[in-house]
Nucleic acid binder design. Structure first.
Length: 581
RNA sequence: GGUCCCAUCGUCUAGGGGUCUAGGAUACCAGGUUCUCACCCUGGAGACACGGGUUCAAAUCCCGUUGGGAUCACCA
């Protein structure tokens, strides 16, 4: 957090890059097939010993140890990867021979949001993929704010985005040559210089066409069925800077040429015929640069090698390619991630409810679960369903990303969340529930040994941290409130003697542990000649106030002797006074 | 409308000509376990959008149709 925020302030905060290969799987380090205590890599439904290529638990190790590509036997022929025929072989990330176009060690990705609101989960997923790709290849993951929309961009949103990424554990690296996180709004001079250069070299020209003229051209183009709208009237007019009329700057787009086609790392062969592309504006009348120019210049200046971004940018990529060409720069590799859609099947929007990362955090989904779910939404690796960040970094590959849009399914998110809750280390779990506990209690709650034990019992019964905090109420509130329905059903006169005897048996215990409690209650059950349920249910309501809870023995153990006895007494008294119906 | 893209159970996905009467996960249903709830276990139902090709053989390749989406700005 500190790093992020300081960086935002524009100060240079050194964050040394790890040496190549450091940070993940290294030679000699523990392999994935060693079931470590914190490793969540679980291939559902496959025996652990299975060595099929689908089981990451063994084979993936080969690929990561030396940070080279997958073992040759496991990698599909590059050509077959994405139905990407024709020229421009897929820029291989995983070629075993090491002949990848981009040297692996220098792989650089970036996430470049417009700070116009909170980070939504679609953006978070894109950032996650960028981050995972960079980490997987020991490269760097950079951040940049595209805040040229001055009206809608706010510092507050920048903060919100940073906070969301921070929470998700998506850490960005320092951008070489920049102080803090680059903002487009601060780079106007650089863009202007580039525009000037393009003008000088004849790759761009000034155009004085008015909005009205443009409107006319649009109509004409439509009427004639022409693809290009701009008729090129000022293309060769050689309009000087001192025309005395307002002008914008347009790029001279070639009539033909291959530079508008590329092999997208996710979408496959992509592109558009150059003759369909207008001489588009690169600098507005007020001299400011247009978005496409800014991205290209920024990505180049930041040394970005792999542009991983949302699918909505796919159709503007040809124009950016044209810019790279005009500038004489080598374009990066592109990977366009399919959109995330809501339950309606439409693009994610406010209509679907609050889909911001913050909203999910506030609802109690652990960050690890969000990362897991989001990563798995559109990306897959065999049957792997539950995994942690570390595993994602070891296994992530653009080849595993699908091409179809994905829909958010809260039911599955809930399941993923529960799986993480079940396996989270105690320390982590305590830290994660703390805010929910406090909120539920209305005051700070201290997590002692007892409460921690109680939390443990609730892991497999909770889908979210909020859920867990709610169920744990009986462990930390002084005044127990009964669920009306449960109390009506179980706290009745016939239960009173059972409760009193249980209280007496429990009160006479020397040690307060599960075994002793079980023995004591067993005695009561035997004495009354009833089944355990007859005692367990009233007891459960007595101590938890609810009809459902973890097993009764461990519940009492976690609650502690004093509270247990007091609550049994209170419940027995209540049971006696309630008229039998 | 132009251009481009996408299409396997409700959802996320595996699949890349034969190994597919299509696998896994989730959700759903039934049963088991059981002091409740959950977890867990077992079983069930559930998909190649449609139509043509190519081929001895198509979920897989080609064309078309349908449906969905993105994008077409001196927005980002």
């Amino acid at each position: 957090m500190a790093g992020h925020l300081a960086a935002l302030g524009g100060e240079h905060v050194p964050r040394p890059l790890p040496p190549p290969g450091v940070g993940f799987q290294r030679e000699g380090s523990r392999g994935l097939d060693d079931p470590g205590e914190s490793d969540l890599a679980v291939a559902q439904s496959r025996p652990p010993a299975d060595q099929s290529p689908l089981n990451p638990c063994r084979t993936a190790n080969l690929a990561t140890v030396r940070l080279v590509g997958r073992a040759p036997a496991l990698v599909k022929p590059i050509a077959a990867l994405r139905r990407a025929p024709g020229p421009g072989a897929r820029p291989g990330l995983e070629t075993p021979t090491g002949s990848a176009r981009v040297p692996r060690m220098s792989l650089v990705t970036r996430y470049a949001p417009s700070p116009t609101g909170p980070l939504h989960i679609g953006g978070a997923r894109t950032a996650l993929y960028c981050w995972a790709l960079a980490r997987r290849h020991a490269g760097r993951f950079l951040l940049r704010f595209e805040d040229t929309d001055r009206a809608r961009s706010t510092r507050e949103s920048e903060l919100a985005v940073l906070e969301a990424l921070e929470w998700l554990g998506i850490e960005h690296d320092e951008v070489p040559g920049f102080a803090g996180i680059p903002r487009q709004s601060e780079r106007a001079a650089r863009y202007a210089g580039i525009v000037g250069e393009l003008l000088e070299r004849g790759r761009a020209y000034r155009c004085t066409a008015t909005p009205e003229e443009l409107e006319g051209m649009r109509e004409a183009a439509r009427a004639e069925g022409r693809k290009r709208v701009y008729d090129g009237r000022n293309r060769d007019a050689g309009i000087p800077a001192d025309v005395g009329a307002p002008f914008c700057v347009r790029l001279r787009v070639p009539d033909s040429g291959p530079e508008t086609r590329w092999t997208d790392l996710i979408a496959g062969a992509s592109g558009e015929a150059p003759e369909d592309i207008d001489d588009f504006v690169i600098a507005r009348t007020d001299g400011s640069a247009v978005y496409h120019l800014a991205v290209v210049v920024d990505d180049h200046d930041m040394g970005v090698t792999h542009v991983v971004r949302g699918r909505e940018h796919l159709s503007s990529t040809p124009r950016q390619l044209l810019l790279y060409q005009a500038l004489g720069w080598e374009p990066p590799a592109f990977a366009h991630v399919p959109l995330l859609v809501g339950a309606s099947g439409k693009k994610l929007s406010k209509r679907e409810g609050d889909v911001s990362v913050q909203a999910y955090r506030d609802r109690g989904f652990p960050a690890e679960a969000m990362v897991n779910y989001l990563a798995r939404l559109g990306w897959s690796h065999g049957d792997l369903e539950i995994f942690e960040r570390r595993t994602l970094v070891e296994l992530f590959s653009l080849e595993g990303v699908g091409r179809a849009p994905a829909q958010v399914d809260e039911a599955k998110l809930a399941w993923v969340s529960q799986q993480h809750l079940k396996r989270m280390p105690a320390e982590e779990l305590a830290a994660a529930v703390q805010p929910f506990l406090d909120a539920e209690a209305g005051e700070p709650v201290a997590i002692g040994e007892r409460l921690r034990a109680g939390l443990d019992l609730l892991r497999e019964r909770s889908e979210t941290l909020a859920d867990m905090a709610r169920q744990a109420r009986f462990l930390y509130v002084d005044e127990l409130e009964y669920e009306p329905k449960a109390a009506r059903k179980f706290l009745k006169p016939p239960a009173a003697p059972l409760l009193r005897d249980a209280g007496a048996a429990l009160g006479g215990l020397d040690s307060w542990d599960r075994a002793a409690i079980e023995a004591a209650l067993g005695g009561v059950v035997d004495a009354h000649q009833v089944k355990l349920g007859k005692l367990a249910q009233p007891l459960r309501v007595a101590v938890t106030g609810r009809g459902a809870s973890p097993g009764i023995y461990e519940t009492l153990e976690a609650l502690g002797r004093d509270r247990t006895l007091a609550r049994i007494e209170a419940a027995a008294a209540r049971a006696e006074t309630v008229p039998s119906d």
